[in-house]
């Protein structure tokens, strides 16, 4: 799977996937869409790149490596729950603020957390399956 056509197209498809995933992530705020599906989309952009080139090159292109990305995503999701506790309500109670006519709330933060977690998990799994199964431990 290392033909020139695939390699060139994966180069341009990767950013397209990421942009599309961000659109769907935002759409998930009020309509169908959301963190999980957009995370899968963004991750598949990178997986495509891994298939065309190899795992090392794809991981080098990332600003944050998959495992820390996973941790950051989970931290964001955890934070979205703790904001509710800080407001004196049960864990995960929604809190909302309005900035410039857009209502932002903890569910969005949770979704962003899911987004990062899914990318992290997907890429960890894929890089293990594609290349590093032998270094399981």
């Amino acid at each position: 799977m290392t033909t020139q056509i695939l390699r060139i197209s994966s180069k341009y498809l990767k950013p397209a996937f990421v942009v599309l995933s961000l659109v769907i992530l935002y759409r998930g705020h009020n309509e169908p869409g959301g963190g999980f599906i957009s995370g899968l989309l963004a991750a598949s952009g990178y997986v495509f790149y891994m298939l065309a080139w190899n795992v090392e090159t794809a991981l080098k292109k990332m600003w944050i490596q998959p495992v820390p990305l996973m941790a950051i995503g989970l931290l964001l999701a955890l934070a979205s729950g703790i904001i509710g506790v800080a407001a004196g309500e049960p864990f995960m109670s929604g809190q909302w603020i309005t900035v410039l006519n857009i209502t932002l709330g903890t569910p969005l933060l949770f979704d962003v957390g899911v987004y990062f977690t899914v990318i992290g998990v997907m890429l960890t799994i894929m890089s293990v399956i594609l290349e590093k199964v032998d270094q399981w431990d």
């Binding site: 820390p68 989970l74 955890l78 729950g81 506790v85 864990f91």
Partner: peptide, 18 residues
């Protein structure tokens, strides 16, 4: 919220460990 600590504490620990 005390009841959530048995879940949140290990989750936070996992994150820091990662």
């Amino acid at each position: 919220n005390l009841l959530l600590l048995p879940v949140i504490v290990p989750l936070a620990t996992v994150l820091i460990l990662l």
